[in-house]
Simulated scan of single mutants.
Amino acid sequence: MSTVNTKSQYLDVLQIFRGIAALMVVVHHSVGSLKFYHKIDSPLLSFIGAVGKYGVDFFFVLSGFIIVYTAHFKYNDPNAFRDYVKNRLIRIYVPYLPIGVFMLLLYTVIPSFSNGSRDLSVLTSLTLIPHGNPALSVAWTLSFELCFYLLFSVSFFSRKIWNYLVLVWVVSVLLFNYTSLHSLTFLNNPFIQVLLSPYNIEFVLGYLLALIIIKGIKINKLLGLLFVFFAFAVFGYLKFYNLQVFSFSINLVFAAAVFGMIYIAIVYFNKKINKKALMMMIGNATYSIYLIHNPLQMIVLRFYPKITTSVSLILALFLVLFLSSLMGYCYYLVFEKRAINFVKSKPLN
């Protein structure tokens, strides 16, 4: 066993994974719109759409890993905590707010634009503070990101306390979700619901993976590959037959498969990837694609010609994936990248 003292030279493969996760979510929402607007009822399409939902779980494991791994090499910086908080808030809010505010105004002026009826929270839409439904539907995941960022900030003051906090957090999540505690009225609060959601276990898996990589723990490649294959096979079986061993079990099996896949990729397939490669470009623009894709795919599929054949169905999905990637990349280049750099360049008073 050896401890990593210097940051890994390349983590480009993680950008590829981020891109894959984003496209999974695009497919998930597109399938929902195809069912709503075109009344397509296909078991295969439904299964593909259902699997796409787990792109969110993919994101959470990745996010937990990236945050913990990158922070490890910055703890000794005198302004580490300040920079961490500043960078995380800028990274979340600067790209989100224009789209979040736009969707809030759009649903206020044209309520029928939404595929379904749901009460919107202005507070959550503008701040991501858990209080209700955000106007931009995918923004619920950002509340979980912020929750993890907030708790992880403790590590900048004491990594020992942070480690104990993780243990308490996981135990609390398990007790809340798998005992009668969840029925207690005082725990039925939006903040508590986010804090004690089982989704947080996926961030913790990312945290544990970062520790394994940092400490240089080596697992045999063949065993690692077999684990990943087995975990994905179990996930596919459970999802296909819709078998829940316990609540959130399918998500956790998928997260375990992603955990192994990230480990194998970093340890055994870590290499420089051309930044102009398609999946690298999509990976770099992942957040913008994630933010922009849902309203975009709703518009595209709402006005798409009536789908009557498998070919037109496949073309519709490819069109949505292409436009989501293209418009997301444009938003990334024109606004996200420049705006983040501009805000970061402003000194804190």
Score class of each variant (00 low, 15 high):
Phe17Cys: 04
Arg18Met: 01
Gly19Leu: 09
Ile20Lys: 14
Ala22Ile: 12
Met24Gln: 09
Val27Ser: 10
His28Val: 05
Ser30Cys: 09
Val31Cys: 03
Ser33Gln: 05
Leu34Gln: 01
Leu34Phe: 08
Phe36Glu: 11
Tyr37Ser: 01
Lys39Arg: 14
Ile40His: 10
Ile40Lys: 09
Ile40Arg: 10
Ser42Phe: 04
Leu45His: 05
Ile48Met: 10
Gly52Asp: 03
Tyr54Val: 02
Phe60Ala: 09
Phe60Ile: 14
Gly64Met: 12
Ile67Cys: 02
Val68Trp: 12
Val68His: 13
Ala71Gln: 13
Lys74Pro: 04
Tyr75Met: 15
Asn76Glu: 07
Asp77Lys: 11
Asn79His: 09
Arg82Gln: 07
Tyr84Asn: 02
Lys86Thr: 03
Asn87His: 14
Arg88His: 04
Arg88Asn: 03
Arg88Leu: 02
Ile90Val: 13
Val94Tyr: 00
Val94Asn: 01
Val94Trp: 03
Pro95Asn: 03
Ile99Leu: 14
Gly100Leu: 04
Val101Asn: 03
Met103Thr: 10
Leu104Tyr: 08
Leu105Trp: 02
Leu105Val: 06
Tyr107Trp: 01
Pro111Asn: 09
Pro111Ser: 05
Ser114Ala: 07
Asn115Asp: 06
Asn115Trp: 09
Gly116Gln: 12
Arg118Gln: 11
Asp119Gln: 15
Leu120Cys: 09
Ser121Asp: 10
Val122Phe: 08
Leu123Pro: 00
Leu123Thr: 05
Ile129Gly: 10
Pro130Ser: 06
Gly132Trp: 06
Asn133Leu: 11
Asn133Ala: 15
Ser137Phe: 06
Ser137Gly: 09
Ser137Gln: 07
Val138His: 08
Ala139Thr: 03
Ser143Glu: 00
Leu146Phe: 04
Cys147His: 15
Phe152Thr: 08
Phe152Leu: 10
Phe157Arg: 12
Ser158Leu: 02
Ser158Pro: 00
Lys160Met: 01
Trp162Arg: 13
